[in-house]
């Protein structure tokens, strides 16, 4: 409130003054109210998710995280009826995300190098936005494309090739006849994560001072040696943060994964078999649960996911902040 007390010399009408002050106050209240509402939304969200899962938490405790049974059956005689554990889902979440990152991080960094260092002129100005546009494709469409176009392609080409060459490693088993499975989900996730990593890394690489790049070139380094020694080397922490950002996106994706992962209830060694993730299990079973405990267990899955996301987000923030401090020193 820096403009007050202008009243003394001129005779402003009292209502005008009061109105002005009222307007300032109203806007202050409205904007801070909106800010507080954001916090309230987040608090309410956490509260709801914890609340919803309380039944499952009291039934299974932390054991939920490492027990692999997920059995919604209610018939009295069945073994482990109405018992829930998320180990298979956590495994699926981690494995699909890792596949996505293994594919998307090198590609994304390479694209960023191209956009920030190599491309110039019109070509770069066209390709950059196109890569970003890839992020705008809705996951449900990517999933549809995954079922009908990508899965058959992977089943007939990539998966047999990997199986033939690396089949002695259990993770590259025989391809699934549907083409669906953990690997396909990982590839779809890679496509979703790729533009994020590329965009973040590009912005990062653009901040590497020209001074440093010139310094490397003047020593008789090739462009690649300059990129590796100066651009990539000085951006290591930032690339880490971008990776975590991509991870955070991959962990929580529900729809596209549900469409292509094929639904599975066991941990299988082969990546080409069906699986499930925390998010995809919620998407599959939430509507049409047979018991309150099942609903609570799905809430519990959401809670686990929320905690994973929280850790990833905070880690990315922390790295970025420390990195910016170091960069600040360099500049």
């Amino acid at each position: 409130m820096s403009i007050q007390g202008t009243a003394s010399s001129t005779s402003l009408s009292p209502t005008g003054r009061a109105g002005g002050r009222f307007g300032d106050r109203l806007l202050t209240v409205l904007t801070s109210g909106a800010a507080l509402a954001t916090i309230a939304v987040l608090v309410l969200l956490v509260e709801q998710v914890v609340n919803g899962s309380s039944l499952s938490i009291s039934a299974f405790g932390l054991g939920f995280l490492w027990h692999s049974t997920w059995n919604p059956t209610l018939s009295a005689g069945a073994v482990n009826a109405n018992v829930y554990g998320a180990a298979v889902l956590i495994y699926g979440t981690v494995v699909t995300s890792v596949i996505a990152l293994v594919i998307a991080v090198p590609l994304g960094v390479a694209i960023a190098v191209y956009l920030a260092v190599l491309a110039h002129g019109r070509v770069g100005a066209v390709i950059g936005p196109l890569v970003e546009l890839l992020a705008a494709v809705p996951s449900v469409i990517l999933g549809l494309w995954g079922i009908i176009v990508l899965a058959p392609f992977l089943r007939t080409t990539i998966e047999p090739a990997l199986h033939a060459a690396l089949g002695w490693i259990p993770i590259f088993g025989a391809p699934n006849p549907t083409g669906l499975g953990v690997f396909t989900a990982g590839v779809v996730l890679a496509i979703m994560v790729l533009p994020i990593i590329a965009a973040v890394c590009r912005d990062l690489f653009l901040t590497v001072p020209q001074d440093l790049k010139d310094g490397a070139l003047a020593l008789g380094m090739t462009r690649w040696e300059m990129i590796r020694g100066v651009v990539l080397d000085s951006s290591r922490a930032g690339i880490g943060a971008a990776t975590i950002l991509g991870l955070s996106r991959a962990l929580g994706e529900a729809i596209a994964v549900t469409q292509v992962i094929g639904t599975g209830s066991t941990i299988t060694a082969s990546l080409f078999q069906n699986g499930d993730t925390l998010a995809s299990r919620i998407a599959e079973q939430f509507i049409g649960t047979v018991s309150r405990l099942q609903t609570a267990s799905l809430f519990y899955c959401a809670l686990v996911l929320l905690v994973m996301e929280l850790i990833a987000n905070l880690a990315a923030q922390l790295i970025t902040r420390r990195f910016q401090k170091r960069r600040g020193l360099a500049l």
Binding site: L45, F299, Q317
Partner: peptide, 30 residues
């Protein structure tokens, strides 16, 4: 006061949309 608000916005932005669905389900649908 700005950093906490910014952090909350970032966290909301990073929350999986399915979890937001679960949240609204618990709040309004159930």
């Amino acid at each position: 006061t700005a950093p906490p608000i910014r952090l909350v916005l970032d966290l909301l932005n990073g929350t999986p949309t399915i979890v937001i669905g679960v949240f609204i389900f618990g709040l309004l649908v159930v």
